[in-house]
Nucleic acid binder design. Structure first.
Length: 331
DNA sequence: CATTCGTGGAG
DNA sequence: TCTCCAAGAAT
């Protein structure tokens, strides 16, 4: 494949000239038709609730891990009312190991709000969606666009990266979404009839081709329009900070949540805090697999203070609740 | 604007 | 093995 001719450098501080938007729209739409993954929440019969559930699950979580949980979830709770009718703890348990379990809590709360304020039907406007728990600017625009074909501008991490490279000539977008990026995204939007396809197409392009690490530029439908490639693929300006994990509260909280999800009965606080073991407590409290999860928690070697802080945090966040018999998921 | 909040597959 | 990071939201 021929290397595109270098493009004139953009003077520092000047806004880069917009590429031919119509060309981008046609190229990416054609590529999407041929290369898009067959995801169930994109099927015509999916419905707004299925789209909404997928958007919650996909927040910071890869598609491959969402797929099986989404299928189970939709079978068990085919409507917001079905989910809202059960305790939030059931949502947290069904969430499984998707991560960020507070999302399950928020999805449950959003379902309750939909029943309470919208007659059980997912609202279709951006402001109404934005008012739901767990719905931010991205998710509100995504549901409006993908579920209702509303002409909203969707900007997620994939779209930001595509825009950064294709238009701005940078390897990666800024650490946080800027007003300039939002203006650019709006300027690139096609007419109303093409908004949904454009949003989905650019997002998919970022997910499959214009990836964060080792992008597959050889398969890119707009390679010859890419400002980053034209500039010789400069290195990223900001090196993303690695997410710490070992020894963090997040790790300890995760291990505690694994215990609570597995438990079929309330768990004595002393077990979570490491001050007593199952032998001391009596083996009656160790149904199915709880011991294994408790061992994992103990192997983290968390301090007494950290264990107490994390348990308090889970209780404060509503991910767990204290009953007379011990700690359990919200009932 | 910077932090916090889970998890596990891929490179 | 170890680092990176994936359709963000709330504070």
């Amino acid at each position: 494949m021929p290397v595109p001719a270098p493009r004139a450098a953009v003077p520092a501080g000047a806004a880069p000239a917009l590429p031919d938007a119509g060309l981008l729209h046609r190229r990416i739409a054609a590529w999407f038709d041929a290369a898009a993954r067959p995801l169930p929440w994109r099927e015509p019969g999916c419905g707004p609730w299925g789209v909404m559930v997928s958007e919650f699950m996909l927040q910071q979580t890869p598609v491959s891990r969402v797929l099986p949980v989404w299928e189970q979830w939709m079978q068990r709770w085919p409507s917001p009312a079905a989910l809202a009718a059960e305790p939030s703890g059931e949502a947290v348990r069904a969430w499984g190991r998707l991560g960020y379990p507070r999302r399950a809590l928020r999805l449950h709360a959003a379902a309750a709000a939909i029943v309470e304020n919208h007659g059980g039907a997912v609202p279709r406007t951006y402001p109404e969606l934005l008012a739901l728990p767990g719905v931010g600017t991205y998710t509100a625009a995504a549901i409006a666009s993908f579920a209702f074909d509303a002409p909203e501008t969707v900007v997620d991490t994939n779209i930001r990266r595509v825009h950064a490279r294709l238009v701005s000539g940078e390897a990666l977008p800024a650490p946080s979404l800027t007003a300039a990026e939002m203006r650019l995204a709006q300027a690139l939007m096609p007419g109303e009839t093409g908004a949904k396809a454009w949003n989905a197409g650019v997002m998919e392009l970022g997910a499959l081709i214009c990836t964060a690490r080792s992008p597959k530029c050889g398969q890119c439908p707009v390679l010859d329009e890419c400002a980053w490639v034209a500039a010789g693929r400069p290195e990223p300006r900001h090196v993303p900070r690695g997410q710490a994990w070992a020894g963090t509260d997040r790790q300890v909280r995760g291990a505690m949540m694994a215990v609570l999800r597995k438990a079929t009965a309330p768990v004595l606080p002393g077990l979570l805090l490491g001050s007593v073991d199952l032998v001391t407590a009596g083996t009656a409290e160790s149904p199915g697999g709880v011991q294994a999860e408790l061992n994992r928690l103990r192997q983290l070697n968390a301090s007494d203070e950290q264990l107490a802080r994390c348990l308090d945090g889970l209780l404060a966040d509503g991910l767990a609740e204290a009953s007379p018999a011990g700690v359990r998921l919200p009932a």
